[in-house]
Design a protein around this nucleic acid. Sequence first.
DNA 1: TGGTAAGTAACCAAG
DNA 2: TTACTTACCA
Length: 777
Amino acid sequence: MNNIYETLNDMQQLAVYHTEGPLLILAGAGSGKTRVLTHRIAYLIEEKHVQPYNIMAITFTNKAAGEMRERVNKIVGFGAEQVWVSTFHSACVRILRRYIDRIGYSNDFTIYDTEDQKKLLKDVIKNLNLDPKMYKENAVLGKISDFKNKLVTTGEVAQMAQSDFKLLNLSKIYNNYQEALKKNNALDFDDLIMKTVHLFRKCPEVLESYQERLKYIMVDEYQDTNGAQFAFIKLLASKYQNLCVVGDDDQSIYKFRGADISNILQFEKNFNNARVVKLEQNYRSTKTILDAANEVIHNNKGRKDKTLWSDNEQGEKIDLYQAEDAYAEADMVASTIKENVDFGRADYSDYAILYRTNAQSRALEEKLLLRNIPYKIIGGQNFYQRKEIKDVLAYLRIICNATDDIAVERIINVPKRGIGATTVTKAKDFARAYGFNLYESLLEVENIPGLERAATKVRKFTDLIENFKDQQQSMSLKELVNEVLNETGYVAELAAENTDEANGRIENIDELITKVTEYEENTDNPSLAEFLEEVALVSEIDNLDEDSSYVVLMTVHSAKGLEFPNVFLCGMEDGLFPGYMSIMSDDPEELEEERRLCYVAITRAMKHLTISYAKRRMVRGETQYNIISRFVKEIPMSLVNSKNVKDRVAAGFEKKPSFSGFGGYEGSLNHGGSGYLGSSYGGSRNFAANEHKNAYRTMAKKPAYGNPSTKPGFGKQFVVTKADIDYGVGDRVHHTKFGDGTVLGVEDGPRDYQVTVEFDTAGQKVMMASFAKLKKL
DNA sequence: TGGTAAGTAACCAAG
DNA sequence: TTACTTACCA
């Protein structure tokens, strides 16, 4: 037997070798579960001679799927690309594209995101003559999502409602919302799962074909699956029962969006003869960090008891930092990172800044910008949710699926063509009266009463769209997008504005064109529909590139599954983390979920953790005074180093209470000193820090609009674009800071080229091509 | 119809 | 603080 499996510990091996029948792997944070999964796949293929085609692995994000695929490829080599690695959503879309017509939908359906859902829902509520104050979109959408995640149908809600007035109305809304989706030939995110389950239930032959194909199924992050996902898995696995799920009940943090922790807690009940393997050895963090995490999570009542342990070194204490306000906190973070990088103790990519809410990123961003620290914010607004991108995509959506009313309404008057709200309302009323789609009724404008005057304008619009549809066949996607941009005058309108904002939007549109081109080049049979689908399913975290030298900022939720040498955990205040709602809630489970979230946050850190909190903080325009988080108090003081940090900072503050740079404590926080430099991640990043500062200078100056530091990418399908270099060994090049030099070497890395240059004055430097922006002379 | 000013509700986490 | 809706006028 090949000995790659002997590098695994006993428990890990047990999990790998148990291939037949249900298996639950309770994998603590950092216990090497991804390694187990990839080795397990390899073992199935190599030792059990299972066809790669018969294996499915479901991950939480596209990024995780891509990484898993990469790692399996590395171990197995030939044939591994046939393993179906995907997220729940992507897997379901793929199935539905093929078979959804069997449950009465059309196979070219559109996927609606939250914004689209809201618009649709708004119309539904209005048409039912219900008070929008009583039925707020967000709340209703949440309810509908709950229903779908539990596979509750519209009919069942109506039945449940009985004489409950509010629930009865809710059931009407739900019902009409579903009908509206269907009419628009659209599915929302939750539908993707629910409809697949419906399909399986209604068409046993379809289910069986997938059961036959997917004989071995693995599910990662099982603690965060919801009822619909459970049903999906259960159906698929019911024939061969070769289901392996991996999860950690302590890391269940998505209850708010329907995750059902009982899926993991009841696994042994749901699947007979299930084998359970616990992975409790942590390979990621220092003992200090792990002890802190264990202490915190032990305060939770409803959990499977287990204690992570580690052979790693004790490591440094956790730094605890109290700041006056969010800006001071941010400045501490920025200056600490800057100092450690400047002194060569770490690379920017060794740092992650985690927080509870996205709103906290603003202050941090500001301070990082101030110090020219390259960063990337994950979360907040996705590239594909930007207005201009959604506008362009709306045109593409209509070309693809003209029944998509939401898309039509979005751009019917963008750019301005004099078709106002009243016109649209009349057209919509007409459409509703005759059972048309909005676009269909627009094609009949001349027959819509009251729209005589607007008819010419509307006709021009439909001609435009019809023209695009005709041209679509004879054009590449890229050409089509350009055609849309030109014919609509979208970019021209922005260009005329000539504001920073408008220019930022144009840049984003250029970026979209790049994406389209990349997609077209990297796909065998590119189609508009498939492109739109991929775009709909990318998540923010998919764009994270660990190999690039920048600091990442994200919520603790986004950080799930990731690890970083150094972690800053900011805003550890009661009211913020744990959040106000969870403190006030009658349900103690809410606080426990927050604690699990805190556990996730702490266990992201490998070498060093810094926790900070602010005495006062601006929330929605008013100042809040919070006390230190109860979770921080659960960490034993012996693991924490707070005194020196606090004192020096306090001293720094007395002099300069404003937000601008306090030099007071600069140089005082030297955590992560020599302690870890020699370790695995320290030595490999030997390029000088200054290059990055320089390379990012241009970036940092740009406005936050169309944030240049948030370069979006696609999920698995796309290789991260390498810098486009036009120079080679021996060429003379110019660098903005170091001047002219000669290229000594160009090394092709997985994500970027590493270029070695001998500068005439500055000496020899090694840099990443995409950052160095070298110009050939 | 479209632009502006004033008013108000909202942020907790995400595919 | 900000993003979005409502009210009013050119």
